[in-house]
Amino acid sequence: MKKAIIYINQFFAGIGGEEEADHQPEIREGLVGPAMLLNQLSDAEVTDTIICGDNFMGSNEEEAVEKILGFLEDKEFDIFFAGPAFQAGRYGNACGVIGKAVKEAFDVPVISSMNEENPGVDMFKKDIYIFPGGKSAAKMKDDMAKMAELGNKILNGEGPLTAEEEGFFTRGIRHQVWLEDSKPAADRAIEMLLKKVNGEEFKSELPIPKIDRVPIAEPIKDLSEATIALATSGGIVPVDNPDKIQSASATRWGRYSVEGLDNLPNREAGEFKTIHAGYDPAAADANPDRVVPLDALRAYEEEGRIGKVHEYFYTTVGTGTTEAEAARMGQEMVEYMKDEGVDAVILTST
């Protein structure tokens, strides 16, 4: 029987949530968490489960990859699975990082699943098979079924077919195929051209991926004259969260005055805390400057390195927040900044 190994994070392993996100990589013989479901659905036997905390992978990527590849060195396996990661950005990143590394080191097929809004999709869809998945673990069964199904096809020598036919994200890899009607490329191109000329719908065989890039801003000529604003996706807000910014999947943002403050007083002082649900709040609550470095920027203001610190800092929550919402909120913030003469922004993300 063929053998499979799966990678999951500390949460799905039942070890814990944010407080355990620094969990070191480990391998356990047998089935942990979603590995059980995969084992039911897969034609392969799932022999081992690899577990790693999302923050550990995010902050110590090289060490995590090295350890995990080390675990796998003496294992026999024909296929590797990671996730599903749903809309969890750090988990998606981790699945992609480890999936790509395993693919390169052992040359086995690697299959994952992530929601289309998960940044891991764009980062790793070229490297491994990633299926579009649900937003949350409610879709565990559906998402894992797709992963297992493709795995079974590959193990049985029946696939994969094209991304379009299988349903995974297009990888941008071109394959040579024989068309059933054997129509030559020149004829197909002319047919497309005629359709285009006639204003009819046509389907390109070489779609150009949409690239959404922000133009690079000109450098600041003289920082000593510039007004610098602070912004964050780390959810730092006044303790009563007056704008009711959501703790995840945010659609709201706020800006709060730092006038007269040398640093951001903490939660205990009744002033600022984080409402971000995607990371352990202890460090940010104890000292919000760890996320919004007002104290450091004030020091540069004092030295005359910058003109001044803008009166407000801008804040929202980045976890589960879609790129579309983030872009809208960013544009709304920029309107205020422009009106009030902000020259540049330092944004910290968590």
């Binding site: 922000v214 000292n287 910290t348 993300s349």
Partner: peptide, 28 residues
Amino acid sequence: ANLIPVAETVGANRMVPTISIPYPLGDP
């Protein structure tokens, strides 16, 4: 940002690495 590859993917132009997710600028 701590996750520089994510920042690259979403299109940040000038990036400075921080040290972790829960405490980008100060290890407790």
